[in-house]
Amino acid sequence: MGNIHDIARLAGVSATTVSRVLNGHPYVSDEKRAAVLNAADQLRYEKNINAVHLARGKTETIGVILPFVSHPYFGTILGGIAAAAEKSGYKLMIVQTNYHTAQEIEAMDMLKLKQVDGLIITSRECPIELVEDYSEYGRIVLCEALSRDFLSSVFVNQYEAFKSALSFLKEKEKKNIGYTVLRMEGKSSISRKKAYEELFGELRSHWVFDQALTIEDGTRIAGEWASLTDQPDAMVITNDFVAAGFLLECRRLGFSVPGDVSVVGFDNHSISGALNMTTVELPLQQLGEIAFEQVISSETSHKEVPFQLVERGSV
């Protein structure tokens, strides 16, 4: 595969003329343009896209850091990012980290190495101070409730969303409420504990079930719930897929929903409607779209997206 100097020799023109033709500049005669394009075709020339990006100062690519590609929560956010990116002519570089700090740092290095124009971090494990350090290399957007001078953010108020589910159950005269989390020490988990203790006082630790991510986790947690001698009479569950697994397994074990246990999920995924399950709707598609608009903007902003409780038949 030839370079522009090879093309220039074959076409009998200068390298400057070749560059003008290949980059679509005017003021080149039709004869010379045809000679350059013919020579480029003969030599099977392809542009060095990295060099083009370097010259332009941008890649028109946005990096997206997420812990799990296949999980519906992050998949819906990603869908919103992708839809907005397509409309604006951008490509995405997606990195799955599994909440490993080293992988998050490796992904942020893409910004430092100018491989992407900006980064959207849907969830993270590494310290916020480290993320701030990388902001000197380009735009970074966080999908969490943080207000920092050099980092944009878009978020659902997880504390208020969880509190709304608890308040709803309290209004329904449910007093013994358990809940699930993905990680005990995660930021959302800390917010959930704070909301619970504000409404109900001291939390019984064995009413909190962790590692809740998939339908299979919901099935497991239902078994753990069933084995308790002091079972909660209501459960607020991490997401609709975990809630679906929990609900279906409870029924398989002979328990009634909502007779023996009420269930509230999160996200308002279509599976919650199919199972007639109460849930807290989080506008994750919209959140992803806003995150993309923030990452290509020159201004730092912080935006909150609303949530709403959708009442169905599981409470």
Rank of each mutant, 00 (worst) to 15 (best):
K193G: 11
A195N: 10
A161P: 06
S147E: 15
P127Y: 03
R139E: 04
F155I: 01
H206S: 11
K193H: 11
L130E: 15
L78A: 12
G79T: 11
K194S: 13
K187S: 14
R204P: 09
I121A: 08
K163V: 00
F150P: 00
K163T: 02
S88V: 13
E185H: 07
A85C: 07
Y159P: 06
S152T: 10
Y159L: 06
Y134G: 08
K170G: 00
Q103G: 03
S191C: 12
I128N: 13
K194E: 13
E185I: 00
R124Q: 06
L199E: 10
V154T: 04
G89K: 07
G75A: 13
Q158N: 11
Y159S: 05
Y90K: 08
A84D: 01
N176S: 14
A165E: 03
I120M: 04
K194G: 04
L182H: 10
Q103R: 14
T76Q: 15
S189W: 01
L92A: 01
G186H: 11
V156F: 05
A85F: 02
E198Y: 07
N98L: 13
I140S: 00
V154Q: 04
I177F: 02
S147Q: 15
D117Q: 10
K87D: 14
R183Y: 09
K194Y: 10
A85E: 05
L182E: 12
K87N: 12
E171N: 11
P127W: 07
A161Q: 07
F74W: 02
F168L: 13
A102E: 15
Q96N: 11
A83F: 03
F168S: 02
Q115I: 01
E185M: 05
I140R: 00
S147N: 15
G178Q: 09
V181N: 13
K112G: 04
E202F: 00
G178P: 05
A82N: 12
I121G: 05
I121T: 02
K87A: 13
V181Q: 09
R139N: 13
S167D: 09
A165Q: 02
S123M: 00
K114Q: 15
V154W: 01
L113F: 07
Y196Q: 10
Y196A: 09
V141H: 05
A85T: 03
V141N: 04
K170A: 03
L146C: 03
